[in-house]
Design a protein around this nucleic acid. Structure first.
Lengths: 238, 238
DNA sequence: AGTGCGCCTTGATTTTGATCAACTCTGTTA
DNA sequence: TAACAGAGTTGATCAAAATCAAGGCGCACT
């Protein structure tokens, strides 16, 4: 399920997420120090990296693939609190234990650090700590936007917002705004938006029928009319 | 609506929230430095302290009363993202501008600092910065718990969870677990839980009929059977 | 005392999204 | 090649919460 290995030296220099992740706070010569403390993890689809309640011993930066973060209820209900994309950091919110489960959506790669090493690095490089704080604050703002989506938007507004958010995030990663690649399943989307899988599927069909999107395949969504889709979303997106 | 004044010296020494707020990171002799930069603000009920989108110039610590944080949609729909209680900090998530509106629920008092002063203080007292980061992480965990409540709980589970959370927070402030004082309106509760005011009201009535709570008055809820209420909430609370 | 307003509760009705169920499609395995 | 599993879509039905509507209560203001 999971494999660990020491990367070759200078891996960071050619890393895609070098300018997006927490390590962007460091200069090229400083990153080598990060690199020495780092080990690399590969995850197969649906493999779990950390479980809610596990002691927090390591933190991670996602370099490729996608992770879903989720909370579970005793009866099996699940809320996905977010999807991590390359450059995102796993462990921003956590204290003694992980507050949520993290699983791979697709094959994923991560840089991994012991919290001991990371604490040392953060101590030595204050800009690293500042950037972590910045990322935590951004995550908090995002979580609150999601509260709005969950609490006050209708299903089509939820799905439209989700598509626009994913499109914006793709653009921020230098990928095209459209078509949006949605690697997660309909069940994941439903558990993120507080809907059922049937409602998600029907809403996609409705948006397609209205000519706002096209669905060349289930995991690829072409945004045909972005402004009308934004109108459906009901919120002005960043 | 709002009044500002310089407090008398040594106000912090006798402050109720001295051990809960961010200033708990400082020793008694260091707090005086905080005190010099501080001014005090009083808010009448429903007065707005900051508005979503306003430039962020000051940060605050609530010392008495209660604030609601909210996001609004163009069409007037509103999502309350949280309620601040004494000791809580306003401005954890915000960057250049405030990400949400903050209004007083009841008459409230706050310590106020310019971000310039606070940045200086944080620079001088690293424990202050560490505590702010800690509070931000706690807020993020709380926001994610709220995502679960909004996305996956049924109305009675939402209301039961809300009551238990408010009860726990009261206890953390040294107030009795029950009766819980809920200073906010039913509309506020509805906008926090993603429900309508009618559903909130009916759910209170139902919990009362089931003998789980008593409602001596609308803003006071006595928890009669905490374990059964927790069972209704469906989640194991911290 | 009377009036009006805000807030809360309760009832009737409607609508929406969940649930239940069937079916397609794709890819894997026997 | 057939059988099967998993994911997605679609349809029918049902239940639950929103909406619409009315009324009560407490409080401020005249």
């Amino acid at each position: 399920m999971t494999s660990h290995y020491r990367p070759p030296c200078q891996a960071c220099a050619s890393c895609d997420t070098r300018k997006m992740a927490v390590c962007a706070a460091l200069q090229d010569d400083e990153v080598s120090e990060l690199e020495r403390a780092m080990s690399f993890v590969r995850l197969d689809p649906n493999a779990s990296l950390v479980e809610e309640g596990d002691p927090r011993r390591r933190v991670y930066t996602l370099t490729s693939g996608m992770l879903r973060l989720s909370l579970a209820l005793p009866d099996g209900r699940r809320q996905i609190t977010g999807f991590l994309m390359p450059g995102d950091y796993l462990g921003l919110a956590d204290d003694e234990t992980y507050a949520q489960t993290a699983e791979a959506v697709v094959p994923s790669g991560l840089c991994s650090f012991s919290i001991r090493d990371m604490d040392n690095l953060v101590e030595r490089y204050p800009r690293l700590r500042d950037r972590l704080h910045l990322m935590t604050r951004a995550a908090l703002r995002q979580a609150r936007e999601t509260q709005m989506i969950l609490g006050r938007l209708a299903p089509s507004e939820k799905v439209a917002s989700f598509l626009l958010i994913m499109s914006n995030r793709a653009a921020a990663h230098g990928r095209p705004e459209s078509p949006v690649h949605l690697p997660m399943t309909r069940t994941d989307i439903a558990d993120y938006l507080g809907l059922t899988i049937e409602t998600v599927s029907r809403t996609f069909t409705k948006l397609k029928t209205q000519g706002l999107i096209r669905l060349p395949e289930p995991h690829s969504v072409e945004i045909v009319d972005k402004s009308r889709l934004a109108a459906v979303a009901g919120i002005t997106l960043q």
